[in-house]
């Protein structure tokens, strides 16, 4: 168990900068999710912490020790890979034990630690099987087990759930979180799925184009996105962006309003008019997709009780000023 500190960490491949300086202090036992679209540099950042990529400049400290030039195995970390990276020719037991064998841990202790991890992960019946004889969820657990037996200070997860189907993903999400709580270990978790980020993170780092746009607790980030990108990326359906001038926001270049903060009113009665393009009734709620007079796509989310407008009909949209999120021309929150 340890803290993890990144200080202005940068990465460049040749002349291309992919990480433009990320700083964050991770507390002991904290679950940090790095979230962002593909190509934003989130995996590269994680791999630098793991020691699989060299750090171009800046410092990485684990438990107060600078580890920039330390080999992965000596960093006191464990990593769960996207495709699990299980050794295909080894049994589940051997997969979990391999790192310990290399570290020359005594045999009885290896046995003990693997059994413990297997019990925790309900893998006991499968210890003699090969990875190809396991289901996706079981492989995922083996990958976790391989990380657990090392008793690392920091857990690193590289999109560990992206190869699972939707239902299993929800289940494993809960399991991983519960496991991390139980072990009390510091975790750094990379995903492109904002739902995973929202549900799992103590704090999240939203990355965009190699920059950490915002670092904060999920609900804070949701309520107060620091940039237009964060506002658009976190939340589903995404935030609506409206030209500031069209709604009388003198200072804001663009204004963001979350779908749930909008109400449909009669045409002309609200702050913006448009035509209902189509409606998705999801049961508990309805998403109404509106095309404004200026051609902007807007989504309004309303509860099931509200009347659903006719497709093609003229509607008005209203919202409270306090729910407006104005952004300047560079996309920064005002």
């Amino acid at each position: 168990m340890a803290t993890l500190t990144l200080e202005n960490v940068k990465k460049s491949f040749g002349k291309t900068d992919v990480i433009h300086g990320v700083s964050v202090d991770v507390q002991d036992g904290e679950f940090i999710v790095i979230v962002g679209p593909s190509g934003c540099g989130k995996s590269t950042l994680l791999r630098m912490v793991a020691g699989l990529e060299a750090v171009s400049s800046g410092d990485i400290q684990i438990g107060g020790r600078r580890v920039n030039d330390v080999e992965p195995m000596d960093r006191d970390i464990a990593m769960v890979f996207q495709n699990y990276a299980l050794y295909p020719h080894m049994s589940v037991f051997d997969n979990m034990a391999y790192g310990l064998k290399i570290a020359k841990v005594p045999k009885p202790e290896i046995e003990e630690r693997v059994r413990q991890a297997a019990k925790l992960l309900q893998l006991e019946p499968y210890l003699t099987r090969k990875p190809r004889e396991l289901s996706g969820g079981q492989r995922q657990r083996v990958a976790m087990g391989r990380a657990i037996v090392r008793k690392p200070a920091v857990f690193l997860f590289d999109e560990p759930l992206s190869n699972l189907d939707a239902k299993l993903r929800v289940q494993m999400r809960l399991e991983i979180k519960a496991l991390q709580r139980a072990l009390g270990v510091t975790a750094l978790y990379v995903t492109h799925d904002q739902v995973e980020a929202m549900t799992m993170a103590d704090r999240m780092i939203v990355m965009n184009g190699g920059v950490a746009d915002q670092i904060g607790a999920p609900l804070d980030v949701y309520a107060n996105p620091a940039t237009e990108f964060v506002a658009g990326f976190i939340g589903s359906p995404p935030t609506n962006f409206i030209d500031g001038a069209a709604v009388g926001q003198s200072g804001g270049h663009r204004v963001g309003v979350r779908p749930e903060h909008m109400q449909l009113v009669g045409a002309g009665a609200g702050r913006l008019d448009g035509r209902a393009a189509y409606c998705e009734a999801l049961g508990a709620e309805t998403l109404v997709h509106v095309k404004s007079a200026t051609g902007t796509q807007i989504t309004v989310r309303q509860d099931a009780g509200h009347p659903i407008p006719e497709e093609g009909s003229e509607v008005g949209m209203d919202w409270d000023r306090e729910n407006e999120m104005p952004f300047n021309a560079e996309g920064k929150r005002l």
Partner: peptide, 27 residues
């Protein structure tokens, strides 16, 4: 051979020749 296998082996602390004999050769 997936890159992740070599990475996993590095995280597991395998030296190059250990990776070669323990992972690559059996595969």
């Amino acid at each position: 051979v997936p890159d992740e296998l070599a990475e996993a082996a590095r995280v597991d602390g395998a030296r190059p020749m250990q990776f070669f004999f323990d992972i690559l050769l059996p595969m």
